[in-house]
């Protein structure tokens, strides 16, 4: 089986994800017709957050590892761009390579130290590492400390990013690559073993495999995907601050995954769409209905999330599948 037939096969099994990616490809046409350039901006944010959530989903959904610190990898990915530029290093491709390497290495170290624990201890250790990195960057005055650092849109030779639409498609291409990569990995021997470990680690050991090796590898891949999202995020936001790795950002990624459908291919992306649209619209809606509470749109969002968790097992993907009468 060649690479192309593997990819074709993967896409055929993940029509929903293919559909969403196609939707993002065509979306700028719509926002162009409607003359709403801000929509593209929102779509880019959705894609970036969706990409990070997809990375986390590999360990959280498929591997069953509840990592509560993945925003740290997004942050490190973004800071790699900022810091590279700080030292006069401008090539965007190199930034991405540095982000991937740094997050891979960091994922290896954190994974190695934390994956020996499980359950609540694992959650706490990953959170602790993320908090350490957060406060490290708060204290690094050289790189802006609390205030963060501004970033120039990087130089992605030969693509000149002066046109925001080019950045849009750069992000889109990154999302497509990540999607295809995960699609293939999840069905490979490695991916199947990772999923088996989630359900029954001792049986996998009894087969003569070392679960830790698979978990660490999955953790590294996941960290690198989040790093890529972070690197692109830096170019999109043209700014990075420690806020990007605040623990609540890690929580947001988990919420997105649960909302969209944990352990599914399309779930994180659908979750990101739903999450950011709600975040965008709920305050406006509240303004109309109850202006005094507009700040507290989370009051509505919380129950929505609880509703999804309680009544839509499998998140929005599960809901869509039930409506469509078939599994995606």
């Amino acid at each position: 089986m060649g690479v192309f037939s593997i990819l074709r096969d993967g896409l055929a099994r993940n029509r929903l994800l293919g559909l969403i990616l196609a939707g993002f490809a065509l979306f700028p046409v719509l926002s162009g017709i409607m003359d709403e350039p801000f929509w593209n901006d929102l779509a880019m944010r959705i894609m970036l957050l969706g990409m990070a959530a997809m990375g986390l989903n590999l360990v959280l959904g498929y591997g069953g590892m509840v990592s509560f610190g993945h925003a740290a990898f997004v942050g490190i990915g973004a800071y790699c761009v900022g810091i590279s530029q700080f030292y006069g290093f401008d090539n965007g491709w190199a930034h991405i390579a540095i982000s991937l390497a740094a997050c891979g290495l960091l994922g290896l170290v954190i994974g190695f130290l934390s994956l020996r624990t499980t359950g609540i201890y694992f959650i706490m250790i990953t959170l602790a590492f993320a908090q350490m990195l957060y406060f490290l960057f708060v204290s690094l005055e050289t790189y802006g400390g609390d205030d963060g650092m501004s970033i120039d849109r990087a130089d992605f030779m030969p693509i000149d990013l002066w046109d925001p639409l080019r950045l849009y498609y750069l992000i889109w291409a990154g999302l497509v690559i990540v999607s295809l990569l995960l699609m293939v990995i999840v069905r490979s021997r490695f991916g199947v073993v990772l999923e088996a470990i989630r359900g029954n680690e001792s049986r996998v050991e009894a087969m003569g495999l070392v679960p830790l090796h698979f978990k660490i590898t999955g953790y590294v891949i996941s960290a690198m995907i989040c790093g890529l999202a972070g690197a692109l995020f830096a170019s999109w936001q043209e700014y990075v601050s420690p806020d990007i790795m605040h623990w609540s950002r890690s929580g947001e990624l988990m919420i997105i995954i649960i909302l969209g459908g944990i352990g599914t291919m399309a779930g994180p992306l659908i979750g990101a769409v739903a999450f950011l649209l709600l975040e965008e619209w709920l305050p406006e809606l509240m303004h109309l209905v109850a202006p005094a509470y507009a700040e507290n749109w989370m009051i509505i969002f919380g129950p929505v999330l609880i509703g999804v968790v309680l009544f839509a097992r499998g998140g929005l993907v599960g809901l869509l599948a039930r409506i469509g009468g078939r599994r995606s």
Partner: peptide, 16 residues
């Protein structure tokens, strides 16, 4: 079977 053959660390071809 993948474990027995010692080839479980593969990332490309669908296993099943």
């Amino acid at each position: 079977e993948a474990a027995r053959t010692g080839d479980a660390f593969r990332f490309l071809r669908p296993a099943v």
